[in-house]
Amino acid sequence: MAVLTPSSVLRRRRNTIRATDNRWSQLRHRFDLSGTPYLYIAPFFVAFGVFGLFPLLYTGWMAITQWNRDIPGSEHTFVGLGNFARLVHDDYFWNALRNTAAIGVLGTVPQLLLAMWIAHLLQRKMRGRTLLRMGVLLPNITSVAAVGLIFAQLFGRDLGLINWGLSLVGIDKVDWQSGTWQSWVALGVILTWRWTGYNSLIYLAALQAVSDDLYEAADLDGASQFQKFRTITVPALRPTIIFSVIMSTIGTIQLFTEPLMFNPGMSPTGGDSRQFQTLAMYVYEQFWTHGKYSYAATVSWAMFMIIVLAVGANYLLSRRIRSSS
């Protein structure tokens, strides 16, 4: 039996410490390799969990209750999918969906075509190119509320600049806010004004990958500006177009501030006949104006599913385009 002298105890302890040290540094090394990347991206997921995932799930929870501002205790009444069943028969929901889609098409299609053409023009070598390239982004960095207010004035019935311009060429006053088509067109113009520059910069960035030789060769062949646009620019942009279509679709489905500011008196009904009430405005009206918390949550979830469907459709479409090219 070994006698435990003080020195042997000390030695043994030192050995243990060395072993632990080794194990620690090994662990640290391993964590450094495989753990830190997760730590680096953790802030995003924490923020997403708090501000994205939790509200998403909580909204889902709200949607299966009958929570109403004016009925105390109603947040504990469960109705299952009853709210979704109601939604299917809700004319105003379908009206909002139709308005959103129509304004989206009117605001996105001309916008993306215009953005491509502008990107094509800005691709050329010319004086002040950087200034112009930056300039097209200006509408996008102005406050959306200010844009809404100013355009509401421009499209004013009695004192609006646009009606004044139309009157010069002999066209009668248009009540932009009151008519269905008129308000859709006006909102399409606002969206186009605000987002064309942004998209043309994205297209322009994609065009940097296109060799100047192609354009020069086309010049030698005597191609017109439009021919070059159609045969060189557009094919080169194809993957980017898919990206911008998806982003515009998502943005359109969430459209809110512009139509709200466009309405005189700024009520979320989108005009006296709900002619330009978008889905997001309908959620806002149900939640804040009428205090139908659960129903607003239901419409929100419907919007979420519509976005998922739209993105899915876009994805399938883009796969077909890619494989065909």
């Binding site: 998403l56 909580y58 909204t59 809110f256 997001a280 929100s300 979830w301 919007m303």
Partner: peptide, 12 residues
């Protein structure tokens, strides 16, 4: 989903 954003905004 606007409520989601609204909510986040409200929380903020």
């Amino acid at each position: 989903m606007h409520t989601r954003r609204l909510k986040a905004l409200t929380v903020l």
